[in-house]
Design a protein around this nucleic acid. Structure first.
Lengths: 341, 341
DNA sequence: ATGAAAGCGCTAACAG
DNA sequence: CTGTTAGCGCTTTCAT
């Protein structure tokens, strides 16, 4: 199974033209080619099944058609969907995508930055696993164009593209308030990154803007999995039985909460409304009775590629660099109006 | 942000050796280098931050360190997990992975085969979207080494690696039979590929081996989503109210079935046991009360890379080519013993 | 143990 | 409008 393929020179020989002319046809330039010559060459290319060698082109032209994508873990459906968007947009732009998993480890991120430099990738899209800017700094040193997706990393002077986490969370809380809820719990995730900070900030802001006094005991720290929401419900009911709604960090926690509510005989949504982000869309999918905030994951990937292309071509617009993508509130039957207290 | 990096010649100049010697150090061969020379070179490499240019190496050596992975859709958690395994094993083998989504379309598969040939990928791992062998044939024409994952495609004389779908399904049915179940429904998915065929075959075989007469009315064609299982339960209860167990094509259908059962007042597992494959692990995750058959998705990816490397190095062992990977039955509390009729 | 040199397949500048 | 040619950065053979 040796892969010895047709070269441009062979095409030139058969078509009885110079190799350069073949290139001009393939690249549609930089020089014009007579229509009949072009046709002859295209015919030979077709007949021989010639496929230009991207490796040689990249070497010669000193530019690559490959971009790197470094994500924490493709098994997480959130990242999987971003990945899908990236690959689609890249493909539309004639780029290929090298996939790298940091496995939530800084060390691996740094490793893959080196790999991307070795591969001379045209650029890198990076969803950071931590809030450490070292990988970004290294890419800068290498002169590797890059864009940070979905996180804000301090100390990195780099274009970043995020979804409007704050606004999404604000919408959710506002929605609950508009329905008459006053005692709204927040299942927080105590991890030091952009998403958790923004969600908590929105929770405080929305309550404040509606003149509702913040009760710190309604903020329950949970882990981000099913059991987090499950134990969270028991905790909050214990702390404050008159809670009428819960805003959960993500939909997995929301589902855990839902189950705990059922077990405790708390009717959802009659006694308790639950809202969460669709970080892990399959979770909401298997439990469609939740209100979720839909994040543009696919769009994030697509726009990320576009922005990266701008950076590569040095026409990135600083004004647009941290303009967050809009989110959408998806209201299902779980949120219910309550009588104002 | 120009990416003008250090070259091997610059390293050679600074270290006052010939470029060739630098190569011998980087590649650990093919010629030996004096320890002190080596050290000097390594120091210079370190000091200058030299990273060998993979593009140039690939061109010169006529072998690539990149493999292609063509999957239907990375958003499907099943494929996402396979992808994870592929990337991990590839990384361990110093390979990079180009990710391609066929989006379940033959046309796109063919497109990406062309892209992989243009990129002169070392090989391709392919999870077919259809049972059409055209992409495989094209790869053969190109001389592109490749391995088919997770499907058996007829008419393609290619190494294929699959999980033991038949055995998994057989285990599940046998498990139910051993618990005393006699009227076991099967929620089938009528799509023409390996998985559905094997699962149905196992259903028939397990019943037959236990001397249970097959009742065709217990085989319900469903679509593979929540609603499939949901309507399936209503259908089967209608056809045969004395059904005590259901084997669902996948766990999403199983969850749909679970919900329908609740709505109909059928107690699970007391009145009805439900078993499904973990095609979409998040589904089972959000609903841990199901018995599932665990498939080695990550392992499939890892082994796929290994097999591909064998094919590339022309030492693929035909005996191992369609040896299926073992699956595991994960029994949770949902299956319950019933009194034999 | 090391240096010199010939390309890998291509792009693009230079020369008609 | 087209042919010739000089490399891109590297691997590896041929010398020494």
């Amino acid at each position: 199974m040796k892969n010895k393929s047709i070269t441009r020179n062979e095409v030139a020989k058969v078509a009885q033209v110079s190799p350069a002319t073949v290139s001009y046809v393939i690249n549609n330039g930089p020089r014009p080619v007579a229509p009949e010559t072009r046709k002859k060459i295209l015919d030979v290319i077709q007949a021989l099944g010639y496929k230009p060698n991207a490796i040689a082109r990249n070497l010669r032209s000193q530019r690559s058609t490959t971009i790197g994508l470094i994500i924490p873990d493709n098994k997480n459906p959130y990242f999987a969907e971003v990945t899908r968007g990236v690959e689609q947009m890249a493909s539309d732009s004639q780029l290929t995508v090298l996939l790298c998993h940091s496995d939530h480890m800084l060390e691996k991120e740094l490793h893959y930055v080196d790999v991307m430099q070795t591969e001379r990738a045209a650029g890198v899209l990076w969803i950071p696993a931590t809030n450490i800017s070292e990988p970004a700094i290294r890419m800068m040193e290498y002169g590797l164009p890059h864009v940070i997706l979905d996180r804000i990393v301090k100390g990195a002077e780099v274009p970043m593209l995020v979804t409007d986490i704050f606004h999404g969370a604000y919408l959710a809380i506002k929605h609950l308030i508009d329905l008459g809820h006053r005692r709204i719990g927040y299942f927080a995730r105590h991890v030091d990154h952009h998403h958790s900070a923004e969600r908590l900030r929105a929770y405080r802001a929305a309550l404040n803007d509606s003149g509702i006094e913040l009760d710190e005991s309604l903020i329950v720290g949970c882990d981000s999995h099913l059991m987090g929401g499950y134990t969270g419900v028991r905790e909050i009911i214990n702390r404050s039985p008159e809670t009428t709604a819960i805003f959960a960090y993500n939909d997995v926690m929301a589902i855990g909460a839902l189950r705990a509510a059922f077990e405790l005989g708390i009717r959802v949504p009659d006694d308790l409304s639950i809202v969460g982000f669709d970080d892990i869309p399959q979770a909401a999918f298997t439990c469609p009775a939740l209100t979720t905030i839909s994040q543009p994951k696919h769009e994030l990937g697509c726009q990320g590629v576009k922005l990266l292309l701008d950076v590569i071509n040095q026409r990135s617009n600083p004004d647009l660099e941290i303009q967050p993508l809009p989110v959408k509130l998806i209201v299902r039957e779980t949120t219910k109006e309550v009588k104002a207290v």
